[in-house]
Amino acid sequence: MPHTANRLPREGLILLLSLALCWGFNWSAMKTVLTELPPLSFRGFCLIFGGIGVLVIARLNGKPLAIPRGYGAKLFWLVLFNMVGWNVFATYGVKLMPSGRAALLGYTMPLWCVPLSVWLLHEALDARRLVALALGLGGVAVLLSQSLTSLASAPLGVTLMIAAAWCWATGIVLLKLWKIPMNTVALTGWMMLFGGIPVILGAFFIDGLPQKPLSLWPALGLIYNLLIGFMYCYWAWNRLVLLVPVSVSSLSSLLTPLVGIASGMIFLGEQPGWHEGIAALLILGAVGVVSVGSAKRF
């Protein structure tokens, strides 16, 4: 049964840390893959084959795959926001700007997620979550302030990443609101597979087919995206969202852009400064408030 506590349980902490590492490094991998593979072809491939892979895993583990009757329309909206909207907007956004900055804009998601969860899920916006929201978004703001000029020079990339964040937030709240009675593995597999169909069809008409095989690093980045970024991380994220209140999971996810910045340093030569240090302290403070502090309200 999902937890309703105001902090992360042990399973949630494990899922959060693994997601921060795996999705954080995925931003650099995405940037590398996009140097040789068109955006829609890239994401469509990962969604289709990732979805098939997750469904195979569910079947091998004896999980039922049937979609409950009467939930088709709700599954459609989850797919539209969580898979199609997020992946299309984020993939084109990261192509137009540095991967670390794209990750930061994508993780403005709690800015939309928290008020939506208060409105639709009637989650309490107590002092603890307000403090965490202020700390987390303060950290994101510090990082973004470092590159306002470069962001202003890529307005389309900024717009796409904010649209991606809004789609992700809406999808998270709807997933929590509707609670489709399926095991998380099968639900994740169907969402990925159904989301991949329009994306891969769009690739034929917009991106065109790849003209040559990928070189080594983009190929490795594609494999990482498929196996880790999609098959594992989407399952882990859906599990985390269903485990704790939306405000807790969304604010805790702010660890990921810190790893995204680090991966940009390691793999893409992006240079950090004092902004990153201050932001790290603020974001870690936000995660600490919702994960290891007292479960009682202030």
Score class of each variant (00 low, 15 high):
residue 66 A to F: 11
residue 55 L to G: 09
residue 94 V to E: 09
residue 194 F to E: 06
residue 129 R to A: 09
residue 265 M to I: 11
residue 40 L to A: 05
residue 57 I to A: 14
residue 93 G to L: 02
residue 105 L to G: 09
residue 259 V to I: 12
residue 34 L to Q: 03
residue 191 M to I: 08
residue 126 D to V: 11
residue 225 N to M: 15
residue 248 V to T: 15
residue 16 L to G: 04
residue 281 L to I: 14
residue 63 K to T: 12
residue 96 L to N: 06
residue 272 P to E: 01
residue 178 W to Q: 07
residue 274 W to D: 06
residue 126 D to I: 08
residue 136 G to T: 10
residue 115 P to D: 09
residue 144 L to P: 01
residue 37 L to D: 05
residue 46 C to T: 14
residue 5 A to Q: 13
residue 79 V to K: 02
residue 85 G to H: 07
residue 6 N to D: 14
residue 295 A to Y: 01
residue 34 L to N: 03
residue 238 N to A: 14
residue 213 P to R: 10
residue 193 L to S: 10
residue 38 P to I: 13
residue 195 G to I: 10
residue 21 L to P: 00
residue 239 R to K: 15
residue 118 V to P: 08
residue 171 G to V: 05
residue 234 Y to N: 15
residue 70 G to A: 03
residue 153 S to H: 12
residue 66 A to S: 12
residue 35 T to Q: 10
residue 175 L to H: 15
residue 219 A to T: 10
residue 24 G to Q: 00
residue 40 L to N: 05
residue 211 Q to K: 11
residue 54 V to T: 14
residue 5 A to G: 13
residue 84 V to G: 07
residue 282 L to H: 04
residue 271 Q to E: 09
residue 82 N to F: 01
residue 29 A to Q: 01
residue 189 G to H: 00
residue 161 M to T: 08
residue 35 T to A: 11
residue 38 P to G: 10
residue 205 F to T: 14
residue 212 K to E: 15
residue 269 G to P: 02
residue 150 S to R: 11
residue 26 N to Y: 01
